[in-house]
Computed example of a mutant assay.
Amino acid sequence: MERIFEKFLWKSRLVVLAAVIISLVSSLAMFYMATIDSAYMISHLVEYPTLADAERIALRSTTITHVVELIDGYLLAIVLLIFALGLYELFISKIDDAENAENASQVLVINSLDDLKARLSKVIVMILIVKFFEHALGMHFKSPVDLLAFAAGIALIGLALYLTHASDSRDK
């Protein structure tokens, strides 16, 4: 009875495959969406040289906002991909091609749950930075306090990046 239960318990880890597949499909969907959005953005830039100055400035501003959104989309796709690969390696099986690849980076090789969390947290910090930048593009400073709050936000971003880098150095 114990052996049957342990066999069932071990096989129950395969339920993680649902999360792996859904994360992978979601990642591919985000890559697709970001790529289509970038093609759409580039198609609008064809008319850029022929625009009047005011229209060109407006298009430049819109394009910068779109680029930030594209970066955000690609970063989210990367988070989902790392999550899918990490779950698979932790609960199902090691990915032989990832471990044996001579030229490949080891960025997608996940050895522990802490390793997966660390890799995901770095990308999530980058997403938050991109979101901050996206909001900063639309900010209007009405008082010196607004500018001071913006500067404090930039300082906190710098601190977050420094602490992330410091934890990497400490782990190595």
Results as ranks from 00 to 15, higher is better:
E2G: 06
E2A: 08
E2W: 08
R3N: 14
I4C: 06
F5K: 03
F5R: 06
E6A: 03
E6T: 12
K7L: 12
K11I: 09
S12P: 13
S12D: 13
R13M: 08
R13H: 05
V16W: 12
V16P: 07
A19E: 09
I21P: 06
V25R: 02
L28Q: 05
A29D: 10
Y32L: 14
T35V: 03
S38N: 09
Y40A: 11
Y40H: 14
M41K: 12
I42H: 05
H44D: 13
L45I: 15
P49W: 05
T50A: 06
D53M: 13
D53C: 04
E55T: 02
I57F: 04
A58N: 05
L59C: 02
L59E: 03
S61L: 01
S61D: 15
T65D: 02
T65Y: 00
H66N: 05
E69Y: 04
L70G: 07
I71Y: 02
D72A: 00
Y74G: 03
Y74M: 14
L75F: 12
A77M: 04
A77H: 04
I78P: 01
I78Y: 15
V79Q: 00
L80W: 10
F83P: 01
A84E: 07
L85E: 06
G86I: 09
G86M: 09
L87Y: 07
Y88P: 01
E89M: 08
L90F: 13
S93C: 08
I95T: 11
D96A: 09
D96E: 12
E99K: 05
E99R: 10
E99M: 01
A101P: 05
N103F: 14
S105T: 03
S105R: 15
S105G: 14
V109A: 06
N111G: 15
N111L: 10
S112Y: 12
L113P: 02
D115P: 00
L116C: 07
L116F: 14
K117V: 11
K117W: 12
A118N: 08
A118V: 06
L120V: 07
L120E: 15
L120G: 08
K122N: 13
I124G: 08
I124N: 10
V125S: 08
I129D: 01
F132I: 04
F133L: 06
E134C: 00
L137C: 04
G138A: 08
M139N: 10
M139F: 09
H140V: 07
F141T: 13
K142Y: 13
P144T: 02
L147G: 05
L147Y: 11
L147C: 00
L147E: 11
L147A: 09
A149N: 06
A149M: 06
F150Y: 13
F150D: 13
A151C: 13
A152K: 01
G153L: 03
G153E: 14
G153R: 09
I154S: 00
A155R: 07
G158T: 04
G158D: 00
L159V: 11
L161F: 15
Y162H: 13
L163K: 12
L163V: 14
T164I: 11
A166F: 10
A166P: 02
A166T: 07
S167R: 15
D168N: 15
S169H: 07
S169C: 06
D171T: 02
